[in-house]
């Protein structure tokens, strides 16, 4: 596989074929998650910023494959707090590990790390920029629930302005003739550059501010959190905060194959009465993260 020894910084670094290979491999790991193929390998997880799901699912993936994990979950306990540069941290940690998984609040830090590091880097989120393993597990979840990635109608809801997961998913799904519906308050609408990108690619999209009306013919409803701190005027937040909450009764009349996805953590944007619906998929989606990350690491380490 061509991903061997290569860093994964952005989902756009992977060709369609490489994405399919990773998804197929993830499927194989789902069937048989305890293969000791990473025996003797050390993975460093450098989390300069806290994360629950991403870090734990990476560590779970390494452990299930028989590898060992070193690392930290916040920068304050490391030499970074003494003023060490990212470059020096990476060059040091590369001595101790075969692969580095990094989350860092500064945008572009993962690309930079991949240029200075002698071992491959997996970007586990660089600020608001990229989070390719999240995109991979989203793709895996879509393919698994819909049987294909082609011709999907994807409704994206919530914070479409700052949400990196929706931006990366949009870019990735644009390769598969997807159509999109963007549902967001006017303060948090999809940035112009992504709409231009879709126009240039000849892909359809619609923009709405109402949730209930616009999910009836969706294949995927991708929910995200509307964060209060994104609004300059707290009154504006109060006005819209309840408009983007998905409730169980809204699922009536939606397509049978439709599934609700969410990168989590959820606050209140999916009401808990949705959890019991067979259309709620977000916790399984988080589980898929383990298989997707197993597949990515195994590919980069050349083990599969």
């Amino acid at each position: 596989m061509q991903m061997k020894n290569r860093s994964l910084v952005s989902i756009n670094d992977l060709s369609k074929e490489e994405i399919f290979k990773v998804l197929d491999l993830a499927e194989e790991f789902e069937k048989n998650p305890s293969q000791k193929i990473m025996d003797g390998k050390v993975v460093a997880t450098l989390f300069f910023e806290p994360s629950t799901r991403t870090r734990l699912s990476f560590e779970s993936a390494v452990n299930r494959l028989g590898g060992r994990v070193i690392g930290f979950s916040e920068a304050s306990s490391t030499s970074v707090s003494k003023g060490e540069s990212l470059k020096d941290t990476i060059l040091t940690v590369a001595n101790y590990s075969d692969l580095i998984v990094m989350r860092h609040p500064v945008e572009g830090s993962a690309r930079f790390a991949s240029e200075v590091s002698p071992v491959p880097i997996i970007n586990a989120g660089d600020g608001a920029n990229q989070h390719p393993t999240q995109t991979m597990l989203d793709l895996y979840s879509i393919r698994k629930t819909q049987g294909t990635l082609n011709n999907q109608k994807i409704v994206m809801v919530g914070d479409l302005k700052y949400g990196r997961t929706v931006h990366s998913l949009l870019m990735a799904m644009s390769q598969f003739n997807a159509s999109f519906v963007f549902i967001a308050p006017k303060e948090l609408q999809m940035p112009q550059e992504y709409k231009m990108f879709l126009k240039d690619a000849g892909l359809k999209f619609e923009e709405h501010t109402d949730l209930a009306e616009n999910i009836k013919d969706a294949d995927i409803v991708y929910m995200t959190r509307v964060q209060k701190e994104r609004f300059s005027d707290p009154m504006d937040y109060e006005k819209v905060k309840n408009a983007y909450i998905l409730r169980n009764h809204m699922l009536e009349g939606t397509k049978e194959n439709m599934r609700v996805l969410h990168p989590l953590p959820r606050v209140n944007e999916i009401n808990i009465d949705v959890d019991d619906s067979n259309k709620a998929y977000y916790f399984t989606q988080a589980l898929n993260g383990v298989y997707a990350r197993m597949a990515i690491m195994a590919s980069i380490l050349g083990l599969k």
Binding site: E107, G108, R111, D126, N129
Partner: peptide, 24 residues
């Protein structure tokens, strides 16, 4: 933030818009 030389791809040659190689 760090001692990194900025690098850009020219995204639009007419208006000269630059896309950052790092943060995109």
């Amino acid at each position: 933030f760090e001692n990194v030389t900025p690098k850009f791809k020219v995204a639009d040659k007419k208006s000269v818009a630059l896309k950052c190689h790092y943060c995109e």
